[in-house]
């Protein structure tokens, strides 16, 4: 039998992960340009925080791919 439980988990995780990645990366791009335009250090800082979160997600992906890490 097909494991629908596993499938729905995979589907949900894939969609949520994509949403998180795109929201934070695109949000970072927007905040960076708005922040520079408005001279707002807070927004530029928030932009870098967004990028840092995306970098962490990539590192987590790398950790998943390389079996030696876990």
């Amino acid at each position: 039998m097909i494991q629908w439980g596993s499938f729905f988990v995979v589907a949900a995780v894939a969609v949520v992960a994509t949403v998180v990645l795109t929201v934070f990366y695109a949000g970072g791009v927007r905040l960076l340009s708005d922040g520079h335009a408005a001279g707002s250090t807070a927004r530029v800082g928030a932009a870098y925080a967004c990028f840092a979160l995306c970098a962490a997600a990539v590192l987590f992906g790398l950790w998943l791919v390389v079996p030696q890490f876990h």
Binding site: A14, V15, A17, V19, T22, Y25, A26, V29, S33
Partner: peptide, 23 residues
């Protein structure tokens, strides 16, 4: 699954960055 995720991702990316017109 991948198509739905990518569709949502694309909408988010274009909405957030004003159709990718931000510098």
């Amino acid at each position: 699954v991948a198509g739905v995720a990518a569709l949502i991702g694309t909408v988010i990316v274009y909405r957030t960055t004003r159709q990718a017109t931000v510098p």
